[in-house]
Design a protein around this nucleic acid. Sequence first.
DNA 1: GTCTATAACAAGATAGAC
DNA 2: GTCTATCTTGTTATAGAC
Lengths: 203, 203
Amino acid sequence: MTVQEPRTRIQRKNHLAILDAALEVFSRQGFGAATLDQIAAEAGMSKPNLLYYFKSKEAIHLTLLSQLMDIWLDPLREIRADGDPVEEILGYVRRKLQMSREMPRESRLFAHEIVQGAPHMRPELESVLRPLVDAKATVIGDWAEAGRIAPVDPHHLIFSIWSLTQHYADFDVQVRAVLGDGRDPFAEAEEHLDRLFRRMLAP
Amino acid sequence: MTVQEPRTRIQRKNHLAILDAALEVFSRQGFGAATLDQIAAEAGMSKPNLLYYFKSKEAIHLTLLSQLMDIWLDPLREIRADGDPVEEILGYVRRKLQMSREMPRESRLFAHEIVQGAPHMRPELESVLRPLVDAKATVIGDWAEAGRIAPVDPHHLIFSIWSLTQHYADFDVQVRAVLGDGRDPFAEAEEHLDRLFRRMLAP
DNA sequence: GTCTATAACAAGATAGAC
DNA sequence: GTCTATCTTGTTATAGAC
C-alpha cells in the first residue's frame, strides 16, 4: 500500500526527496520522456522504494502539478485593487521574473504540460486559473477605464506578463546562446521589462 | 539501405508525409515521448517502411529541425535598415504572430527542443541564430541611438517579440482556457501587440 | 530494382512480487 | 532491496508486391 499522507519524519523526508527529484527530471525531459529510474537515482533510492511512496509515475506528476499551481499563482493574487495601478502591475512583473530566476524548474514543468495541451491540468485551468485571472482582469480593466493606466486588454496584458517573464526561464538556453557569456540575462530583463511596462502603461 | 535524397515522385511524397506526420507527433509530445508507431500511423505506413526512408527516429527529428530553422528566422531577416524603424519592427511582430497562427506545430517543436536545453540544436543556436540576431540588434541599436525609436536593449526587444508572439502558439491551450469560447486569441493579440509596441517604441 | 509489410529482437520501461 | 513479470520501444531480418 502506498503512502498517501506522510506522517512520520522519514516519510516526509522521502516524499520531499522524491518530489524534488521528479521536478528535476520532469522539468528537463517532460513527463513522457522521463523514467522512474532517473527519478529514483536522483532521489537516491531504489525504484520499488519510490513506488512505495507514490503508486505510479503519473501520481508523482499530478502531485507536483497541483502543489505548484498554488505557488505559481501567488504573485498574481498579490495584486491589490487599492494600490497604485502602475506600481501594482510592475510589482507583479518583478515577482514573476523573480520566480523565473529562482524556480526555473517549476516554470519548465508547467511549460511542458501546457505545450503538450495540458493533458493532466486542463480542468484546473478552467476551475482555478481562469477565475483568478478574470478577477484580476476586472481590477485592471477598471484602472484602464478610469484612465489610471493606458487603454489595454487586461487578459492579454496578463498573457504578456506571463510570456515575457517565463521566457527567461523556459528559453534560458536560447537566451544565453544569443547573449553570449559574461552577461546576466535576468538582471538585464528586469531593467528591460520595467522600462517596457512603464511606457506601455503610462496613462 | 535508407533513402537519403528523394529522387522519384513517390519518394518525395513519402518523405513529405513522414516529415509532416513527425511534425505533428513531435510537436505534441516532444522527441522523447513520441514513438515511431505514432509517426508511422500518422503517415499511413508501416514502421519498417518509415525506417526505409529515414535511418532512425533521431534522423527524422534532425531533418525537421534544420529544415525549419530557416523558415523560422525568415521574418527576422526581412527587417530592413533603410525602412521606417517603428514600422519595420511592427512588421516583424505581425509576421511572427502570423507564423504562430499558421505554423503552431513548428513553434511547439522548437519550444520543446529549447525547453529541454536544445540537445539537438545547440550548435545551430550559436552558428546561425546568434549572428543573425546580432546583426539585426545592431540595426535596432542604431535606430535607438539616433532617437528614431525609444531607448531599448535590442537583444531583449527581440526576446520580447519572440516570447509575446510564440506564446499564442505554444500556450494556446492556456490562452483559450482563460479567454473562454467565442473569442479569437490571434486577432486580439494582433491589436494588443500593435498597441504595446507602438507605445513602447515611440521616440 | 523499388518499395512495402510481417515477423522477430534486444533494450528498456512500469509495476509489483518476493 | 533484489529480482522478475509484462509490456513497449527502436531497430533489424526477411521476404513478398509493384
